[in-house]
Simulated assay, not measured.
Amino acid sequence: MKTKTYLAVMEPCTTGYDVFFPDFPGCVASGKTIDQAARNAKDALSMHYYAMEEDGEDIPEPSAALNAEDTAGNVVSPITIYPELLHEEYRNRRVKTNTTIPAWLKAAAEERGINFSRVLENALMGMIN
């Protein structure tokens, strides 16, 4: 499985650590501890990477090294993501949608314990496939 590893720069601050990725301007995170900052950085990088791919933007190759200005007094940590898993995860995530049905139908379905989401999903899958 293909992986991508980017360098995250963790800057100490009064609340813990602020994180940025020199390869991805605008991709930021933070955390109270280095471990929390690294977890949040991975989430931020994953979402940023996915959004760029979905928008058809060029994805930068990981930098092999960072300049001294970025690293001075900071912690540098490699963050690895799995692009194929990102696509699968985000593509299959559950999203909320609103629908309108007659009140009597809603009441009758609720009385029978019918799962509205499951019914709608099954019906749409049947119509699409």
Rank of each mutant, 00 (worst) to 15 (best):
87 H>C: 05
23 D>Y: 04
35 D>C: 06
93 R>I: 05
104 W>G: 00
57 E>W: 09
102 P>H: 04
79 I>P: 02
48 H>W: 08
47 M>A: 11
38 A>V: 10
111 E>D: 14
43 D>T: 14
46 S>F: 04
11 E>M: 11
39 R>M: 10
109 A>V: 07
47 M>H: 09
64 A>L: 12
56 G>E: 08
17 Y>G: 00
79 I>A: 10
46 S>H: 06
128 I>A: 02
80 T>V: 02
20 F>H: 07
32 K>S: 02
118 R>K: 15
35 D>F: 13
49 Y>Q: 00
129 N>Y: 11
33 T>F: 04
41 A>G: 13
98 N>V: 13
108 A>W: 09
107 A>G: 03
119 V>L: 13
83 P>D: 10
64 A>P: 02
58 D>T: 15
112 R>C: 13
110 E>H: 07
75 V>P: 03
68 A>L: 13
97 T>A: 14
3 T>E: 14
83 P>Q: 05
98 N>I: 06
57 E>A: 00
53 E>S: 06
114 I>V: 15
75 V>N: 08
86 L>W: 04
40 N>V: 03
119 V>M: 11
13 C>W: 01
97 T>M: 14
39 R>G: 00
6 Y>K: 13
91 R>N: 15
92 N>Y: 10
29 A>C: 02
118 R>D: 10
99 T>K: 08
67 N>K: 13
13 C>G: 01
27 C>M: 02
99 T>R: 01
110 E>N: 08
100 T>E: 11
103 A>K: 12
2 K>E: 08
100 T>W: 03
29 A>T: 07
125 M>Q: 13
43 D>N: 09
111 E>N: 14
106 K>M: 09
24 F>W: 05
36 Q>L: 14
11 E>K: 13
73 G>E: 03
117 S>E: 03
108 A>Y: 03
38 A>D: 01
119 V>I: 14
49 Y>P: 01
1 M>T: 13
98 N>E: 00
18 D>R: 10
53 E>V: 11
117 S>P: 03
75 V>S: 11
83 P>S: 06
82 Y>Q: 13
27 C>S: 01
9 V>Q: 03
20 F>D: 00
19 V>H: 00
63 S>F: 12
6 Y>D: 01
20 F>E: 00
102 P>N: 04
27 C>H: 04
116 F>C: 08
50 Y>F: 15
53 E>T: 12
42 K>G: 06
119 V>E: 05
7 L>H: 13
70 D>P: 05
54 E>D: 07
9 V>W: 09
25 P>C: 06
71 T>V: 15
13 C>Q: 02
52 M>H: 11
43 D>V: 13
64 A>R: 14
121 E>L: 14
128 I>H: 03
10 M>L: 15
91 R>L: 11
100 T>P: 01
80 T>H: 03
16 G>T: 05
114 I>W: 12
2 K>P: 10
74 N>R: 12
77 S>P: 00
38 A>S: 12
110 E>M: 06
119 V>T: 05
66 L>C: 12
75 V>I: 14
66 L>K: 12
69 E>Q: 13
48 H>S: 03
114 I>S: 09
9 V>S: 01
91 R>V: 07
30 S>A: 07
108 A>G: 08
102 P>C: 10
112 R>Q: 15
